[in-house]
Amino acid sequence: MEPQRPDGEPTWSDLSTREKASAALGITGLGLGILAVLAMAMLVGVLAVVLLSNGLIEADSTSSLVWAVLLCLPYFLLAGLFVIPVRLALRLMAMSGRMKRGADAAISVATTFLGALFVESFTPGLHVEHPWLPALLAALLVALANLVINYIERRKGRRSSELSL
């Protein structure tokens, strides 16, 4: 007999085949749900950039925008690969916490800008007149979203610390 975990929870090997299938199905559903939410957020972001660019971006059809959303992940990963040496160099430098957070934010904006340039340049059916303007807009929208998220987290942290007093 296998020893039980200290917290009393069963391990994967303790589960029956039906419980394992149920758990696998639940995790798969959760993963697909998270992917769907991320895809919708990316689609909203792409549509926002297209609408705010006001004539700089022309798509042959709506499938071009879907392609842009689908290609965001690989292009942003590629942009992240180009930025890794700079990120590593900044982490090796002796900087204060505030400067490191600022440098990380600047690297994040640069990665978003480069990824958006890749999406605009290599998505089939997408024609961009001045590609750096929509890419800059996308980077600024991501930076604004990060600022809003940080503000909400700080506010939630203050509220929970006030409740615990």
Rank of each mutant, 00 (worst) to 15 (best):
R87D: 11
T123G: 00
E58C: 07
L38F: 10
L81H: 03
L38Y: 06
P74Q: 03
A68H: 00
R98G: 04
V50F: 07
L51S: 05
A21P: 02
L25P: 04
V148T: 12
E58W: 10
I34V: 09
Y151W: 09
R5D: 07
R98Y: 13
G45Q: 08
L141P: 00
G80A: 05
D7M: 02
L90M: 13
K20F: 01
I27H: 04
V44G: 05
S64P: 00
S121V: 04
A138Y: 14
A68R: 03
E162K: 13
A36F: 08
L77M: 14
V46Y: 04
R158D: 10
S16T: 15
V109I: 13
G29D: 08
V50I: 04
W12Q: 08
G31W: 07
S16G: 08
Y151N: 06
A145S: 15
A139C: 09
E9P: 03
F122S: 09
L114C: 05
W132E: 01
T112F: 00
P6H: 15
L140C: 12
K100F: 02
R5P: 03
W132M: 00
G29P: 06
Y151F: 13
L144R: 08
G102V: 00
T11R: 11
L71H: 14
R18H: 06
V46L: 08
A103Q: 07
D14R: 04
V44K: 12
A138I: 13
L35S: 04
S22K: 11
R18T: 06
A59S: 02
